[in-house]
Design a protein around this nucleic acid. Structure first.
Lengths: 192, 192
DNA sequence: TGTACATCAGTGAACGCGCGTTCACTGATGTAC
DNA sequence: TGTACATCAGTGAACGCGCGTTCACTGATGTAC
């Protein structure tokens, strides 16, 4: 049943993509190797042809998730200067939207894995730390302030975004009024 | 082997206490019934004499954890007015301290379970939502602002505390400099 | 270009393990008289 | 207060299940000639 090398790479990509989706929705420990493989349309035995272990998959998935998040904020950072603040406002508005809160898995890796990551293996923690550093750098550039002020402001903004979305998601079903208030209030505070 | 009713209640309390500690350190799914019972000094079979299911234990543990967190912020809220702002500052300084970050399990239930809670059963989610609402009310009182402004300010502060500690913990081992910077910056921003 | 064979991606059964939960059993406690 | 017995907290073995990982096997692909 050997298949072409291209097909094999495509299969690996599909497994990784599936893992990204499932890990986002249920956390690293919430989706097993067998389920990821099944959802990717294969049997679980072949998993170890592509990944050394489940932790290796987790680490690659973590890096991949950050890839998307970093790219999104870099699109703001790399915009022409006159569009930057407007794009950043759009980014923040979208990040703190009810739609973002109600999505099955959080798009933001810090919200999806923040609490879990310190319980995972070293490879996952490394991928996470590297991703976060890159994210923060891009956010500092997106803020467009003088360099020495930008990092502090980026931390500020990041802390608020992550705190608000994390809290809003945690009571999204059980206390929607509070959940809305958290998003709303944090959005109003943006820029202050 | 029947034991006195008082002894039995004491045993249940010890099981709950153990669960609180383990859940804080590893999340709800990171500690099993057998291990909780073993750490509490008993065999796992008797678990169901005290709790209907593991979820029931999780819900009780969640409520218990909030009990402590709410009590701490209520000690600030219920302080004489002239001491309140100083006590709040102490509370915040302690919350954002390296010691708090480096503890095995987060004392703050939002940081310990924020990401997990929306993946747990309804009883856990309810316990969490009720705890969070009480925590926020106490924090609003602790801020001592006029009632209509206090809630918004409490949300603000909560968002920053939870975001900062959560992020700082997630890279505490892998990027200690960034982790320190997050705590430091957020502490400096307190009151602004 | 054609042939012969080694490679290896994927299959599916199996491994040991820990999970939440159930259950027959024990025997001191609590209760009815 | 003393006796007889039902209650029930705790024990330890067992249940089915899903986990991560291993392995013998298959057969089309990739390669050496």
């Amino acid at each position: 049943m050997r298949i072409t090398r291209a097909q094999s790479e495509q299969n690996k990509a599909r497994v990784l993509e599936t893992a990204v989706r499932l890990f986002r929705e249920r956390g690293f420990d919430g989706a097993g190797v067998a389920e990821v493989m099944r959802e990717a349309g294969m049997t679980h035995g072949g998993f170890y042809n592509h990944f050394e272990s489940k932790e290796a998959l987790e680490a690659e998935a973590c890096a991949q998730i950050f890839e998307g998040a970093v790219a999104a904020i870099e699109r703001v950072a790399d915009a022409p200067e006159r569009e930057r603040s407007e794009r950043l406002a759009t980014y923040v508005r979208n990040y703190l939207s009810p739609r973002s809160r109600d999505a099955a898995g959080a798009r933001c890796p810090m919200v999806a894995f923040g609490a879990d990551v310190s319980r995972q293996g070293p490879d996952v923690q490394d991928a996470y730390a590297e991703g976060l550093a890159r994210y923060l750098d891009a956010m500092a550039r997106a803020l467009g302030s003088p360099a020495e002020a930008a990092r502090g402001e980026a931390i500020d903004l990041l802390v608020r975004l992550v705190g608000a979305l994390s809290l809003a998601r945690s009571v999204g079903r059980t206390d929607p009024a509070l959940s809305d208030a958290i998003l709303q209030r944090t959005l109003e505070q943006f820029g202050r």
